[in-house]
Amino acid sequence: MEQHVFDRLMRDDKLPHMWCRGCGNGIVLQSIIRAIDRTGIDQDKAVIVSGVGCSSRANNYTDFCGLHTTHGRPIAFATGVKMANPELQVIVVTGDGDSTSIGGNHFIQAARRNIDLTVVVFNNSNYGMTGGQYSPTTPVGAFTRTSVYGNIEPAFDVCRLAEGSGATYVARSTTYHVQSLIKYIASGITHKGFSVIDAMCDCPTLFGRINGLGDGAKMIAAWPEKTVSIEKAGTLSADELEEKVIIGEFVNSSRRSEYTEKYARIIEEAQRERADLK
């Protein structure tokens, strides 16, 4: 009988995990595990790189090569790993704050280069680990520990930011829509180029409590109402879309070439030139 995917790809000795009751991070991590399994990539060729935050604890529980780095910098470290050994499949696990605030510059530069990384953003709209401060993806009007009168800053749309910066695979799903979340992460891994999957998840302990959204079960059950598919979004007016989160595949393009492939050609050319000089 085939071993269960958790037995093959998780580190059982590290479980149970440290996330709160009803936290969506476990569902996103499970989706990553299943997506890696679905693509059939070699366990020893997969590297999970994380930054700092609740989301970034994810690679402590997986049985792949792993790199737990500094706040906001997982994409910078992942770029180094990929450049040194382009054969590796590098997957970045990061949070909304880690990737779009502290690491915002790394995020856009890596997208601009179109380097073959798969970035899964655990987007729970606040900084969970430090006590629930607002992040660049906190919706306008939402309450957090640092926006007690309601957030006045417009939120980043992670997918539009990625697309505008040059990412060649961009998709969004939620922990409720777990089957499409797995599918998009798998597509992102298979895609040759910079892939971003915006994984919407819930922080019931901080964001949920302060906004009166109920427990983890109530919060996840609210996603169908809060979301609209990319196909349906095309038929709605700007006003109707105002409060909605659009889910689906936004970009899937192979028109731009990938960074490490271009760099390999540079290495080849430089070595040839050097050989000619001898």
């Binding site: 009988m1 269960h4 958790f6 998780m10 479980l15 149970p16 995990h17 996330w19 009803g22 936290c23 969506g24 991070n25 476990g26 569902i27 499970q30 989706s31 299943r34 922990t175 409720y176 777990v178 089957q179 797995i182 983890g216 996840i220």
Partner: peptide, 18 residues
């Protein structure tokens, strides 16, 4: 299998009895 897929705690495994 949605119970297993949406379990945030890796606690559920569901299948058919062999």
């Amino acid at each position: 299998r949605l119970c297993e897929l949406r379990c945030p705690d890796f606690a559920i495994r569901i299948g058919r009895m062999q």
